[in-house]
Structure formats: structure tokens, C-alpha cells
Amino acid sequence: MDSIIFDLDGTLWDPTETVVAGWNHVISRYKGAAKEVTIADLQGIMGLPVPEVGRKLFPDADEEIRQKIMDECCDMECLVLAKQGGRLYGQLEEVLKALSAQYKLFIVSNCQAGYIEAFYEYHQLQNYFTDYENPGRTGLSKGENIKLVMDRNHLTSPVYVGDTEGDMKAARFAGIPFVYAGYGFGEVSSHDYVLERLDGLLELF
């Protein structure tokens, strides 16, 4: 193994308590076109591509309104997270510091452009990561973005750490082992390794 590629939401942090008020502020401007969301709602869509999030949270809104709501929520999310951050799992910085001494670390998330940068800006953890990618920048699926990061960084034997079925499928698409973050938001049908807590990575690797 030469590297570890991480999902973000449900794997490295939980941002939902920070962003829920921002989402509902945006939604309130659309006069009943969509209902307010809860923390549980947001936790339930973590890891999904942005268009799928819109369809799941706002099924009754027409496509144009749904897209406007999602665009504004995504913009609000990045602004709020850059100023307030999210809840980091475990001893995240200590874990990253230990792992980065031995492996190259990366983030590939199904988020909008600016989201990973907001995570970096508030928590100042960017020095532990070599590269990152998301569909907001590339328009690609998570599996394709994993392969993109692998190719441009010349990785030969990475693993992917994530918490959802989509993460598992993305790792399978990229042809690399999947480490299931069992403490996160989702459930998976298969995995190569499982973590009960984030610092279990130090024991696993």
C-alpha cells in the first residue's frame, strides 16, 4: 500500500450541525417550494452527488427551482463551513499526522467545488494531503475521480476509506480495496476492511 484516499463527509467529519441553518435559510426564500431539512435529512444524503441530493430532498419542486435551491445551498454551505468548520471525527489531526509520515493522503468526495477547500480553510489540515478531487471540478463520478487522482499522482496500491454504498462501488470501480468507516452515515453491502472508529486506521495500517 502506498497511499490512502479518503471520502470526507461521514469519514473525516460531520458538517451537518453547522450547515443545517444555512440550508433552511435558503429554502425559506422559496415560499413553500420545498420543506425545511433536518440534521437527519442531511446525514441521510451524505455521499450522494449534488443532483441526486436535490431529487431526494426536494422531490416536489420543479427541476429549475430545485437546481436554484441546490446551487444556493451549496454556496451557503461552503461559506459557513469555511467560517465555522464541522465536527471532526476522533483525533483527526493526530491520525493524519501519523499516517502522512508513512503514506500519501488524498480526498475524493462527491461534493461541489469549494467544499473541500472550506474544510481545509477552517481546520487547517491541508498540509497532510497531497491532492484532492470532486465532481464539482471535474464533472466525473466518484470512481472516475479516484482513478484520476491515482493516475496523476502515479499511485500503484492505494485504498479508499468511506462510509457509504456509493463509496464501496467507487472503490470497486477504481479496482482498489475499500475500508468501511462504520462510524459514519451509511451502510455497505461489502468491504475489505472495517473501522469502528477513525483512529482504528493506525492499527489497521
Rank of each mutant, 00 (worst) to 15 (best):
Y30F: 15
Y30N: 01
Y30R: 02
Y30A: 03
K31A: 04
K31M: 06
G32W: 14
A34F: 14
V37Q: 02
V37R: 01
V37S: 00
T38H: 14
I39E: 13
A40K: 15
D41Q: 09
D41A: 05
Q43T: 00
Q43H: 04
I45V: 15
I45H: 15
I45F: 15
M46V: 01
M46E: 15
L48A: 03
V50L: 14
V53Y: 14
R55D: 06
K56T: 08
K56F: 13
K56A: 13
K56E: 09
L57H: 10
F58Q: 11
F58A: 05
F58W: 12
F58N: 07
D60E: 15
A61F: 11
A61G: 11
D62T: 07
E63K: 04
E63R: 03
E64I: 00
E64L: 02
I65G: 04
Q67T: 08
I69D: 11
D71F: 05
C73M: 08
D75S: 00
C78S: 05
L79H: 08
V80S: 03
A82L: 08
A82V: 07
Q84C: 03
G86D: 10
L88F: 06
G90V: 02
G90S: 01
G90N: 03
Q91L: 07
L92Y: 05
E94W: 11
V95P: 08
K97F: 09
A98W: 01
A98N: 09
A98Y: 01
A98I: 04
L99A: 05
L99Y: 06
L99V: 02
A101F: 07
Q102Y: 09
Y103E: 10
Y103P: 10
L105G: 04
F106H: 13
I107T: 02
I107R: 03
I107Y: 00
S109Y: 07
N110D: 15
Q112P: 04
Q112V: 05
A113C: 02
G114R: 11
G114V: 12
Y115G: 00
Y115P: 06
E117I: 00
E117V: 00
A118T: 02
A118L: 04
A118I: 01
F119T: 07
F119P: 11
F119D: 12
F119K: 13
Y120F: 15
Y120I: 03
E121C: 03
E121D: 15
Q124E: 14
Q124F: 11
Q126C: 09
N127P: 08
Y128E: 12
F129L: 11
T130P: 10
D131G: 05
D131I: 08
Y132P: 11
E133N: 07
E133D: 10
P135Q: 09
T138K: 06
T138N: 08
L140Q: 07
S141P: 13
S141D: 15
K142T: 04
K142W: 09
V149W: 06
V149C: 07
V149E: 06
V149I: 10
M150N: 06
M150Y: 04
D151C: 10
R152N: 13
R152P: 14
R152H: 14
N153A: 12
N153E: 13
N153H: 12
H154T: 06
T156S: 09
S157H: 15
P158A: 06
V161L: 14
D163C: 14
D163K: 12
E165G: 09
G166Y: 00
G166R: 02
G166N: 03
D167T: 00
D167K: 13
M168K: 03
